[in-house]
Design a protein around this nucleic acid. Sequence first.
DNA 1: GATAAATGTTTTATCATCCTAACAAAAAGG
DNA 2: CCTTTTTGTTAGGATGATAAAACATTTATC
Lengths: 158, 158
Amino acid sequence: MAESKKASAVEKPLTSVMEDYLEAIFDLDQEKRVVRVKDIARRMDVKMPTVSSMLKTLNDRGLVNYEKYEYVELTKNGAGVGKEMRRRHEILRKFLTEILTIDHDVADEEACKMEHALSDATLDSLTDFMEFIQTCPRAGESWLSLFEAYRQGVKSTA
Amino acid sequence: MAESKKASAVEKPLTSVMEDYLEAIFDLDQEKRVVRVKDIARRMDVKMPTVSSMLKTLNDRGLVNYEKYEYVELTKNGAGVGKEMRRRHEILRKFLTEILTIDHDVADEEACKMEHALSDATLDSLTDFMEFIQTCPRAGESWLSLFEAYRQGVKSTA
DNA sequence: GATAAATGTTTTATCATCCTAACAAAAAGG
DNA sequence: CCTTTTTGTTAGGATGATAAAACATTTATC
């Protein structure tokens, strides 16, 4: 009978969708005075009833403080998750746009999916990697433009 | 009025889970003489009834040919999807293990999730990127060992 | 402050994925 | 062959995420 987490019951892991909601709420919180169901619905591209029921879930899980018809507030815990997802999102978006030169909107979508998939170790390594690339130009020339040139070559000789 | 179904009825996109099953079946097909429900269950880490019902779904979608109690066979279509997922998986696994030096098992898990998330454009760019890195050593020294050295520095001075 | 508009909730349903339990067929092995 | 073991299916249910329709509350506007 192992697995004694805190003092609480089992503590199921968050789903990716829950993480997305927390990230969305975290962002909205920084953008607007107050966060409303409607805003979350628009951001998440779902209908309001979906948000309503998710807020109930997140409330039960201690990730938001929400009483019906009131504004939405993240708990410390929920804000932590939201912020971490935001951080991950940024790292991935940056890799996709700055290194792989993927279109911004596409990068955003893909970062949004990948942010749930990658371990801390992978994120850390990716972070170091980008830093390395951007601080180690090769012989005067920017490393990234060498890659661009290489890609041109690949494409035209394919 | 009703959605004629046979010849082209909107063609809903596959779910990630379906893609995973097709990839698993594709792999098993190359590893063994025949593919059985039990093998798929083990590979996917689900119970046999789950496989049974998924095979029904995939059969209806024209992705496998399956009659109960028989062996599982991919249709041309299904094999195409399976192979593509395999290809994507390999690209991502390679990036994670060879560039980011992530542990093989972790890389496998993460590749498995990312393979559904990334567009063709991103995969292509990533492919070119790895090729570039591995064919453009910097001034005699291998580029990757420079990155390794850089990481060591980052870690020790952090 | 009454009424209209906007916002939010409840109820009910769907879909996808998975499970357990009970049953059924096929294969193995005397 | 007949019996046991292995493999597979069916039935029925759980869960998580979603939506449409109907209803409720809050806010804005006259």
